[in-house]
Design a protein around this nucleic acid. Sequence first.
DNA 1: ACCTGAACACCGTTCAAGT
DNA 2: ACCTGAACACCGTTCAAGT
Lengths: 215, 215
Amino acid sequence: MPRTPRNTLSPELIVETALGLMEAKGTNGFSLRALAGELGVGPMAIYTYFRNKDELYDAVRDHLLATGAPTPGDGPWQDQVRSICGGLRDLMLQHPCLVQLLGGRPLSGQETVGLAEIHLRVLRSAGFGPEDAARAHIALFTYVLGSTSWETQLKAERQDPEGRRRLRATMESLSSADYPTVVELAPELSLTSGGPEQFEYGLDLLLAGLSARLG
Amino acid sequence: MPRTPRNTLSPELIVETALGLMEAKGTNGFSLRALAGELGVGPMAIYTYFRNKDELYDAVRDHLLATGAPTPGDGPWQDQVRSICGGLRDLMLQHPCLVQLLGGRPLSGQETVGLAEIHLRVLRSAGFGPEDAARAHIALFTYVLGSTSWETQLKAERQDPEGRRRLRATMESLSSADYPTVVELAPELSLTSGGPEQFEYGLDLLLAGLSARLG
DNA sequence: ACCTGAACACCGTTCAAGT
DNA sequence: ACCTGAACACCGTTCAAGT
């Protein structure tokens, strides 16, 4: 076990190593002691840079949002919204821990401000009033958060062979007496499990509603 | 410490006691050992009824969805969808742990089938085809999931005085050079933080999009 | 079957100390 | 300032045993 020499640690190195561990072992499987082991230091070395585990979580979340912030591109406002929301979805699918970091940690506020700024700018330019822009931004953002959370979960389930078996078993055990509509729509429901089509279906509904409000 | 006599334990009692602890201490603060202490038994007594902690999580989630399942009511299909989604939101706000249980645990499938059945029935009766009904159900469900997750987090932040201070401090520290639109729309953005109005704003967008698809 | 008790391999964090 | 090492109060879970 090579001990890392002094003064080689930094907040950035710690955050990036932590991110790697979270993606490898899942957010719940992550531990400060494992992180310290990976860095070649004692567990307490990390406390020089972060007050506790939660502060490190927040730093990882902010790091992801800062480096992977989506851009609006150009074109009509609908395409710009699609680009921002799609970019945010890509970021979350690429870093599943981000979903849990956004949904399961207190919000200092700072972290999502960058995203809000570009999103609100697009909506204001499109002609939405202050309140509509603010509400539309949150409606779109929470949709991305929820649909990505669901998609991530299904994806993880389908990667585990035991999980696939369980899902199939559940579907086959459904009695069409208790759940006639679910059984009837089973093929269509399987279409909805993840993928860009389902994501854009809901996004298009929101955009259609927004377009109607604008006119 | 009164030891609970034998054969007084049951899956139901364990699940309900676990739910109480999760609501009191948060999902992350919950532990099997604390649960055993509350029940007046040794930690291993629980393993007679559940194979491990994850199975208990799933049981709590299924219990909440089974007992608190929302009903469509009657009226036009838009009102029925509003009733179902609003009921699901109420359930999640009342039991914040449900958000984390739905977003952070593998999906066996079974647990959300009851909800899917009533929701799909409403959408099919409204005239939506099989694929539209399936996709609309998931789009609406994931919107409820995301917006409730966000709302729960903000609520928790605002209940903690330290959290309120942090939120205010962040808002005041935003330079209008870096984030002009966010600073300008600060009053409107504060409107979006939770509450039924914001929830229904997004829900109405989705319903408007769906109505357009039907015609 | 239902439950205990000791044990194992972990946690996050405090505290005093070393460089 | 930067980091160590021992210690504390926890975890989930296994295993052998008791009723």
